[in-house]
């Protein structure tokens, strides 16, 4: 299968702190990859480097076989890699539908018009369709600040998908969302992602979510990838249990355990 994303010996150092160490990742087209790791493991740093927000100290990043190292976030977005954020990045004083309309206009052209209205009937209709698809059309006229966290996350992801990206990176899509809402949110996102045929890499702390939605897991610890494989195998890995998930194997009585 063709790789859509490949990183080679990707390193990031913040002074003496090594946030990413020799990250070699290959993501094939159509894969849904989960990234797990405790806080400070380097997951968000990895996403930030791949999407152009942070410049790696060393290494190479290839997207569809072409280097995107040193490219700006907007150039990477235009190349077909979109992202969502740990804290939903929206336009807080605008209505939900206006957020979508801005994203639609941006997807149509990198040069905004000086005189033709942004809120055209066609864009509003399309925005409503997208909000319906994501199940947040009820909030269409609400200001973002008045919308619950889960709905904000969905709007954030919907905006990322508007430009028809080939790959989507989701940074903790369920963070700040109640346990009850998590599955609904992820079902909505994954349905949309499958419809668009997008390759997905997402950071997640909830192992139930990881097991349910991904075909492959990357486990990060202290800036390194300590396991890479099928969810069942990675989550059963002793180092992952010990350093990432914290689920140590139950020790049998008589083994010397107290």
């Amino acid at each position: 299968m063709t790789n859509i994303l490949e990183t080679r010996s990707l390193n990031k150092e913040f002074g003496a702190v090594i946030a990413a160490k020799d990250l070699n990742v290959k993501v094939a087209k159509g894969e849904i990859v989960g990234v797990i790791g405790s806080n400070g493991a380097g997951k968000t740093t990895f996403i930030n480097m791949v999407t152009g927000y942070l410049k790696p100290t060393r290494g190479e990043i290839l997207f569809n076989g072409k280097s995107i190292l040193g490219h700006s976030p907007r150039a990477i977005t235009r190349a077909g890699m979109a992202r969502s954020f740990q804290v939903a990045q929206l336009f807080p004083e605008m209505s939900v539908i206006d957020n979508l309309v801005v994203a639609l206009a941006a997807a149509e052209s990198p040069r905004p018009s000086f005189l033709s209205p942004l809120r055209s009937d066609a864009r509003i209709a399309r925005a409503e369709e997208i909000l319906t698809e994501f199940g947040v059309v009820n909030y269409r006229n609400s200001t973002v600040t008045a919308v619950p966290q889960g709905a904000r996350k969905l709007v954030d992801i919907a905006m990322a998908l508007i430009g028809n990206p080939q790959m989507l990176l989701l940074d903790e899509p369920t963070s700040g969302v109640s346990m009850d809402e998590k599955t609904g949110l992820m079902d909505t996102v994954m349905n949309a992602v499958r419809q668009h045929g997008v390759t997905v890499l997402f950071v997640e702390h909830d192992m139930d979510v990881v097991e349910r939605y991904v075909s492959r897991v990357l486990a990060f610890y202290s800036g390194e990838i300590i396991a890479d494989g099928k969810p069942s195998a990675v989550l059963a890995d002793e180092r992952v249990r010990d350093l990432v998930t914290g689920h140590r194997p139950t020790q049998k009585k008589g083994n010397g355990a107290s």
């Binding site: 700006s72 990045q89 807080p92 994203a103 997807a107 990198p110 905006m159």
Partner: peptide, 11 residues
């Protein structure tokens, strides 16, 4: 309101 988001919309 949010320059980062504008950048990540490709503008």
């Amino acid at each position: 309101e949010n320059e980062v988001r504008v950048e990540y919309l490709g503008l």
